[in-house]
Computed example of a mutant assay.
Amino acid sequence: MIKAIVFTSDSCPYCRIFEKIVLNELKRKFPIEFEVVNISKNPDLAEKFNIEIVPTLILVKDGKVIGGFMGFSDLKTAEAAIKKQLKANCYGKCP
C-alpha cells in the first residue's frame, strides 16, 4: 500500500495554502492514504525522514520512501510528480 505523508508547520503560510487547496484536490484524484504531519508536534518523524523544508510530501510504500517533493507546489505540478513517481514504482499494480 502506498501512503503520502505531508510534512507541514503551523508557522508556514505556504503549508496552510498547500493543505487547504492542493492537498484536498490530491486526495480526490489519488486513491492513496494521505497523512498530514506537523513537524512541531512530531519532530521525531520529521527527523526520521530528514525533513528540512516544509511543506514536503513523501510517498511511502511498504515502509520505504519511493518519491516525493519538497517545497510549495501548485496542483498541476504536484499531480504530475505523484503520477510519475507512482508509475515508476508500482509497475502497474498501484493506483
Rank of each mutant, 00 (worst) to 15 (best):
I21H: 08
G68C: 03
I53V: 15
K41Q: 12
E33N: 06
S9I: 13
K3Q: 15
L59V: 02
N24V: 09
K87T: 10
N42E: 14
N50C: 03
E19L: 09
N38M: 02
A81I: 01
M70S: 14
Y14I: 12
N89L: 13
E35V: 13
S40I: 12
I2A: 13
V54F: 15
I51A: 00
V65F: 04
C90F: 09
K93M: 12
Y14V: 12
S11K: 15
T56I: 10
E35S: 11
G71N: 11
L45M: 15
V36Q: 09
L23K: 04
D10K: 14
L26N: 05
S73C: 07
F18T: 02
L26E: 06
K76V: 10
L59N: 01
D62C: 08
C94N: 01
I53P: 14
F34M: 02
P43S: 05
R28H: 07
F34K: 00
E79G: 00
C15N: 05
V37W: 04
K93E: 13
G92W: 06
F18C: 00
P31K: 13
D10A: 11
G67S: 03
S40H: 14
P43Q: 03
C15I: 12
A81M: 15
V6N: 04
R16A: 10
F7Q: 02
A88W: 04
M1Q: 06
G67R: 02
Y14E: 07
V37Y: 08
A78M: 08
V22E: 05
C94E: 08
S9Y: 12
L75A: 02
V60W: 10
T56S: 15
I32E: 04
F72Q: 01
V37K: 01
D74W: 07
C94Q: 04
F69P: 12
L26M: 09
A81W: 01
I82N: 04
F72R: 00
L59Q: 04
C90T: 03
E47C: 08
D44M: 12
I39S: 02
P13Y: 06
K83V: 07
K3C: 09
F49M: 01
K93C: 11
L59F: 07
S11H: 15
